[in-house]
Nucleic acid binder design. Structure first.
Lengths: 231, 231
DNA sequence: CGCTAATTGCGATCACCGTTCGCAATTAAG
DNA sequence: CTTAATTGCGAACGGTGATCGCAATTAGCG
């Protein structure tokens, strides 16, 4: 197991110097897994499923990826490459807001992403590039280093959480929504019971009128302002 | 399948009117599952494991719970019962801040909770009671109903995300930390590569000096203020 | 009292999962 | 041309959620 020594995906060379040419690539596998996740949800991304989708045996995938978790890590970093990091505004707050909007778009394109981002931070090169850009946007701000990191982390967290809320109340393509789908009948019964008057009243107002763009911008801007990021 | 008709856990009567007395209870099962999750992490909470821990056969659990997801739902609502909803301050912001602090404590007691809260909202009676209390804290605030709900949702989301960050950088009892454990070597190498100067600089500052209590209070208070909650 | 009908506990089983092992086939280097 | 490393992968292992069918138990009713 010579070339596979590093426990780290990103330190491991993709191609060995000896032996037959690999018939697949890390990138191809990640792309295939990504398509499956986008179409059928993250649970559908099993080793066997991905392997079959690229015409490989199940065990063969382990030549490219050490574990299923590593596959997910690859997927996350691949998607992190969708950021356009050069773009941005003048003031720090504008730049971060821009990044947040991009993040929101990415999470909408890949509905499986938001939960993962909150659970396990990605550490691949693309993710690091994003992090660098975000921290770099704070270079003119007088804040201790760790505070900057915390700010960026909370920014991502807020974005993920907001998108999660959006996806939960969205019609959903039938793949990801299922969570609280069947529990609705109990909800209406509970609300009619009179035990939760304020809740019922709050829900009486019609569903949010679709201007969630401004809501998002407002929340993020507000957080950044409070965190001491000028804009 | 007469009494099991309702697809909803909370609408289903626990005890049937006919037949032998159940040897266990929904509550007992939830408690057992809870202990396992607290001790060994959520992945250890399998149907068989929980069944064995209460001296029951695996298939027997399905007499009390329709699926594994439902078990988790039970766990979440059980833990939601740990809130002290009567306590609270004068102003709306104080009340919500109080709830947020309680939520943070609960998530620290049950490290598996934070990720779940962000992924799937709980809908059990205890969770609804919490929601009612939170929305009720906003009764004097002039805000449309949906906006109040959104505020409360974001409050929970921010709390979960913050706790998640805390737990990630905590020593961890060995059960939940493992996420980005082995990926550290690549991180240091990447930082030394010079490709991420701002990131490296930001990480040079010593780790956050433990005053995360004020950090949390500050972030939440700031968000609430921005959301239009007087305090 | 005894019968009926519903419900419980659960062993066996299915399909699927991540992962490991061993081996034939392939290839670059010496 | 030999050698050593690497690839692809069928088969298997242990564990998962879930279903089925059956014996045992029990409340209500005639």
């Amino acid at each position: 197991m010579a070339a596979h020594d590093p426990t780290d995906v990103w330190r491991r060379p993709e191609r060995a110097t000896v032996g037959p040419k690999p018939e697949h690539s890390r990138n191809g596998i990640a792309t295939a897994a990504l398509r499956i996740a986008d179409d059928e949800g993250l649970p559908a991304v099993s080793i066997r499923r991905v392997a079959a989708s690229i015409g490989a045996g199940a065990a063969s995938l382990y030549r490219y990826v050490k574990s299923h978790d590593e596959l997910v890590e690859l997927m996350m970093d691949t998607v992190a490459g969708e950021y356009h990091l050069e773009a941005g505004g003048e003031h720090p707050r504008e730049k971060l807001l821009n990044l947040a909007h991009q993040g929101r778009d990415i999470m909408h394109r890949h509905p499986w992403l938001a939960p993962l981002l909150l659970t396990r931070p990605s550490m691949g090169p693309n993710s690091l590039r994003y992090l660098e850009a975000a921290v770099s946007a704070l270079s003119t701000v007088d804040l201790p280093g760790p505070a900057k990191l915390q700010t960026v982390a909370m920014l991502s967290a807020i974005t993920s959480a907001f998108v999660q809320n959006e996806l939960a109340s969205a019609p959903g393509s039938g793949a990801v929504d299922g969570a609280a789908a069947g529990r609705v009948p109990y909800l209406v019964e509970a609300l009619h019971s009179g035990d939760y008057p304020h809740l019922a009243a709050a829900m009486a107002g019609q569903a949010h009128s679709g201007h969630s763009d401004e809501q998002f911008a407002g929340i993020v801007a507000n957080y950044l302002a409070g965190a001491g990021v000028p804009g």
